[in-house]
Design a protein around this nucleic acid. Structure first.
Lengths: 343, 343
DNA sequence: TTGAAAGCGATACCAC
DNA sequence: GTGGTATCGCTTTCAA
């Protein structure tokens, strides 16, 4: 708090020659106040720059108006966080600010205890979970204890849970549809590490299901690598794919940054995008613009998701009695210059 | 707050058959409590999973234990935020968590009023400012009103202010020293837009001073472009530089992402990095690894800066009476594969 | 060593 | 319309 004199509602009351109750009524826009009184009090308030003490209001109200985002410092498989995650954060922060909630970031690893304590000690009213697993102890714990929260991502069993998630399965399918529509048949798929699927990490699982569906739908021959996002891994996997199937004409990647590295790998083999190989990814628009050529991609609207998630959380907190909300983002194909018709 | 029954200190007192005061003493680790009493009470606390109500504690204490980072949604010149800024955020969040402060992100534009109100309404105890200008009304306002804050960046007049900043001037100088040491003489400089310098934006100003110093130190001929960070702008500027001075053998850039685009521009003219042109930037290590080849760069340790900034803020809040702290990060050259000896 | 009670700054119920 | 007062959950004198 600043060192300048800070006023209380009692000061205002005294200066205006009214009672605290009256000032409180005015602060809260109640109607049963004489206009003259209201004017006088508001005059004083403006004069001394009084602002009600938020902590006190909230103690009284039994709410904190604090929301938090549980931010995973490392993604599963130790992928360092990427720009996508900033977008989640900023979207969430924007939605919170709009409704006058303070929005905090929790980056320390949580335990059962520390998670529950956030609620028990009234540090927050609710929180947003990211990097959700098919079986996620955090979701189970919070659900069992009736702690308000929403997820970016989803579990296997979402009974009673609120979430917003990308429809990765359809996203991958959409990418393949686009390529097949351009005449491609020999299409390689770069997915997340198989290990992540086994751990039940949503994006990995759903993307893989999308891949299987795409293979079936279009009767394509399997051709894929499951790999991490490091530059080195992406490059190696791409080269392997080229060795395995030198005739491949297109690549689908689910990695946020991968295309930059895929392009490099292709160059090594003397291939240019999109003339000698089409390339499409699931990524954020901002990243898509960075690469050269700009990437055709299925959008990953992280900012909007963070924003929506917090709105959903606030709805839930304000007692909107609606049953759990499950929001699934449909894929949105953005065509740039990294894909071209075959031939 | 969760819907589960939530206990108060009075519940604990009742269950343990002692007074509220006693429980409070135990919670606060006071020593004048009979061991037997202490044990019994702690037993109860553990049993029911009681956690003191943070809001109430803080109201009582007159502190919020909330810190905030004023996050600029757009950099000056409308550069969209970049990964560096995530690092600031995460570093700051980590430091706050360590000291048990809640850390919030404020992304809405602030006015004089809203800024002061954060303190007046006891939403926060202090804040971190980013994107600081040479003459920054926010810093002036907060200083005049004795509101605790620290800056990432600095003003022209830092009397009474706390900050941590990169020494951009030395950073640029270091980059030039490295290149000159490798035998380069025809070195181009890619700086921030001149407009930003005129607006007194720190990094732009100090980087430019570093450039001027480097020219003088090594008696180099001026060769530069001042440009925005968009892919298009960087590419165009690079091509212009190549046209102006086809013999240039090295480029220094202060743009976070630029190297990716500079490399592309060079390729267009049939030049490879580092064989046909050396390239060095001021950037975060994570970004440096992304490019191909990995970039030689002067490190921009954003995470550490965010971390330090919050530590400094907390020191200030906890009444460490030290005079204002001015921390300047010395340049740290990280040699990778984008620079090579001339010839 | 322990307990009673005042108070942090606001809100809301109940009289007048 | 307005004011008095209990209350939110906790900490801290002050007495006992």
């Amino acid at each position: 708090m600043s060192d300048q004199p800070t006023y209380t509602i009692a000061d205002v009351a005294r200066l205006a020659g009214v009672s605290v109750s009256t000032v409180s009524r005015i602060l809260n826009g109640k109607h049963d106040v004489a206009p003259a009184t209201r004017d006088r009090v508001q005059q004083i308030i403006a004069e001394i720059g009084f602002k009600p003490h938020a902590q006190a209001q909230r103690l009284r109200a039994g709410k904190t108006r604090n929301l938090a985002l549980l931010f995973p410092l490392k993604s599963p498989g130790n992928i360092p966080y990427n720009p996508l995650e900033v977008d989640f954060i900023l979207g969430a922060a924007a939605a919170a600010a709009e409704k006058d909630f303070l929005f905090s970031l929790i980056t320390t690893p949580v335990t059962k205890q520390s998670l529950l304590n956030l609620y028990r000690s009234a540090q927050i009213d609710g929180l947003v979970l990211m990097q959700v697993y098919a079986h996620d102890w955090r979701a189970d714990l919070l659900r069992n204890n009736n702690c308000p929260f929403v997820m970016i991502g989803r579990c296997d069993d979402n009974t009673g849970l609120n979430f917003i998630d990308i429809d990765f399965e359809s996203a991958v399918q959409t990418a393949f549809d686009h390529l097949v529509g351009l005449g491609h048949r020999k299409i390689a798929f770069l997915g997340q590490p198989a290990e992540m699927r086994k751990h039940g990490w949503g994006p990995a699982t759903h993307a893989w299901q999308g891949y299987e569906r795409a293979l079936a739908t279009h009767s394509l021959a399997p051709l894929y690598r499951e790999t991490g996002s490091q530059r080195r891994e992406i490059i190696d996997s791409t080269l392997e794919l080229l060795d395995e199937q030198p005739d491949l004409t297109a690549i689908v990647s689910v990695h946020e940054f991968a295309p930059l590295s895929v392009i490099q790998a292709l160059k090594k083999r003397g291939r240019n995008v999109p003339d000698d190989c089409s390339l499409i990814a699931i990524m954020n628009e901002r990243i898509g613009e960075l690469s050269s050529p700009p990437m055709t991609h299925v959008d990953f609207p992280a900012h909007a998701m963070g924003y929506e998630a917090v709105q959903m959380l606030i709805r839930r907190l304000e007692g909107d009695p609606a049953s759990p909300e499950h929001i699934m983002i449909p894929p949105r194909l953005i065509i740039r210059n990294s894909t071209a018709p075959l031939g």
